[in-house]
Design a protein around this nucleic acid. Structure first.
Lengths: 209, 209
DNA sequence: TGACAATGAATGAACGTTCATTCATTGTCC
DNA sequence: GGACAATGAATGAACGTTCATTCATTGTCA
């Protein structure tokens, strides 16, 4: 209300991006009009162009914000007491945080966009490599992974883990929207844990599941 | 050109769908115009409307064709001599068949569309369930899976396998377009085989990979 | 000639983007 | 403090373009 303008400038950008992510998740990048975004943000169309050069700049800025969010989660994951907990943080934070599958829909759209926009593809690849390097390092250092490597290197394990995470994220957008965030999260964790037990559990504890 | 009309009616539909899948993979559903499709098919715009009610009908028809293609591959997979070969057929046929990643881009777009179009979501879910039921049955009957279940049921294994397959498909759209189909296929198989070794290999053969 | 396949110019809605205009806030002088 | 000038955030109508869709017309067989 009575904030100095120094605060309000970044606020506007953020406000627009918050509105954009909702619209993009609901309708997709290219079916979302600038009017949709302005309506969702409660501002006029013209104002968006004061903060972003054009529509693609909005998409880019949002991809960049997504990148920052991922690296934040990666930091949190690195601080977890066990490797399993690290992975659970990493693979449920992005997919199930919001009310509906906003993030999942956005990320699938991001990959879809990446398939024909090289700049988006570069960005997504970059995010992926950073996150994967982090997880690979996590696995290398984890005591759980020392004794039961099953002939796989940490990188190979990380690739498998990421494949499963991406695949579950894709499944997430198919789910009926009545599902709660908790249910979605639980479903996600089930499969993650199943992979976990394949990769790391010693044969003694087969009565898991 | 001079075909009798009995043949030419389904031919036209097929011709339009062939053109559409190329356009959709290149530009996405909603960035592809009807003029793009007509140009790719080498016919006029108006003619498309003789065979399809509107643009969404083209998308639906293509999703249905995709469904048929999947069930064909499933049949082929069921005839393979070993479970590993079945899975390799199933998870490389769709992702790496065409020159560039046409199918991968199309499928990612299909999921993206599914996230906001309930009818597409129903169709994709249906395809997925059919395919997964097939693979679950395949695993149940396979001698390879009898002795080393790692505490996982066939359904749970199938879910894991499908998650990895979807995840690799997603990764596929990020790859630089210079990669050949063979290279892409090989990359896909590597990770599939890695999961395979985790799920089914007895501990004796750890010197795999 | 009649029936049907095929065309592509025409239509109108919707889109991204621009810009003349408004107006609350801030700065400046007496 | 009060009067006035300057600012730039914010607006939304308007513009040119693109798109899905239509339909009057043309071509092609039997």
């Amino acid at each position: 209300m009575t904030q100095p303008q120094i605060d309000s400038v970044p606020d506007r950008r953020c406000q627009i991006l918050d509105a954009a992510v909702i619209c993009f998740a609901k309708r997709g990048f290219h079916q979302t009009s600038m009017h949709d975004i302005s309506a969702e943000a409660g501002i006029s169309v013209g104002l968006i162009y004061r903060y972003f050069e054009n529509k693609e700049a909005v998409i880019s800025a949002m991809a960049n914000r997504h990148k920052k969010e991922i690296s934040d989660v990666l930091q949190r994951a690195k601080g977890a007491p066990t490797l399993l907990e690290s992975l659970e943080i990493l693979f449920t934070a992005h997919c199930c945080e919001e009310e509906t599958g906003v993030v999942s829909a956005f990320v699938v759209d991001l990959y879809s966009e990446a398939s024909r926009n090289p700049r988006v593809a570069d960005l997504v690849r970059d995010v992926l490599q950073t996150a994967m390097a982090g997880v690979t390092e996590l696995i290398s250092k984890a005591p759980e992974a020392q004794n039961t490597t099953r002939g796989l290197s940490p990188i190979e394990m990380a690739e498998l883990i990421f494949a499963v995470a991406r695949g579950m994220l894709m499944l997430d957008v198919l789910r009926p929207h009545e599902m709660t965030a908790t249910e979605r999260r639980e479903r996600q964790l089930q499969v993650t844990r199943r992979l976990w037990s394949c990769l790391f559990k010693p044969e003694a504890e087969l009565a898991y599941a």
